[in-house]
Amino acid sequence: MALILVTGASTGLGRDTANALADGGHDVVIHVRNRARLTGADGTARWKDVVIGDLAELDEIHDVARQARRFGRFDAVIHNAGTMRSPEAGIVNTVAPYMLTVLMDKPGTLIYLSSAMHRSGSTDLRRLGTGTASYSDSKLWVTTLALAVASRWEGTSSHAVDPGWVPTRMGGAGAPDDLAAGHQTQVWLATHHDVRPGTGGYWHHRQVQTPHPASQDEDFQDRLIRALESHTGVPLV
């Protein structure tokens, strides 16, 4: 049985991921933006606990990390929360995963939700500071973050996952990919120890793919980490 945190778990892929993990007998802590997001007949009964906070606000990201630290070291953290809206995309999709990664105890496994759209993202990190990052930018950056952490944190596995374009509220009803398959890679990575590569993978439907070259470039990884440290005042150590 593993202790696992899933962010953005009120609906969509996050809720599907949390449900699958709970059904597998794991202790699941879910994150939701606000208490009103806790809907459905099951309420909070199936979760070990709930942490609450708006990941578009730096102060609330700090508070979510504080709440999560009460549980000690997680076996896995799944950074699922995301938005396609600007200007929140850069903060929710990149800054929040970075801050939670740094401010919480190092888990056994880190999983960051990416997207095939990361391939059209920009390496212009000035967009981070100006709040002009697009969804594609933010997904390139969080993919880069996942691979940067993989090379820096011995003892913690770090992966990025493209769940596909699935028919969630964010993906839209016409999205062509399989919703049922959208959460399965995250669940598998969080609960299996025989994954190859053991860290630094970019995954789609449990298959390793080659991400945007910038995400694997050590110079760009360094620039991204420095930009995130400067933006948040929180160093990656």
Results as ranks from 00 to 15, higher is better:
L103A: 05
V32R: 02
W47D: 12
G25R: 15
E60W: 06
R69I: 00
V50E: 06
G43L: 09
A89S: 13
L58R: 08
A68I: 00
T39E: 08
G90I: 05
R85I: 09
T101Q: 09
G40W: 01
R33A: 10
N93R: 10
A96N: 09
M84T: 12
V51H: 03
L38M: 12
R85W: 09
A89D: 00
V28Q: 11
Q67E: 08
T101E: 04
V51Y: 02
Y98M: 12
A96R: 07
V92Y: 01
F74T: 03
A65I: 00
H31Y: 03
G90C: 11
R33K: 10
T101M: 08
R73V: 00
R73S: 04
N34W: 01
A89P: 00
R46V: 13
I78F: 08
G43A: 15
I52E: 05
H31P: 09
A81P: 10
T83F: 03
A45H: 12
I78R: 11
T44N: 10
H79M: 11
A41I: 06
A45I: 07
R66T: 05
T44Q: 11
R70L: 01
A89I: 01
V102D: 06
L103H: 03
S86N: 11
A45S: 14
G24D: 15
A45W: 07
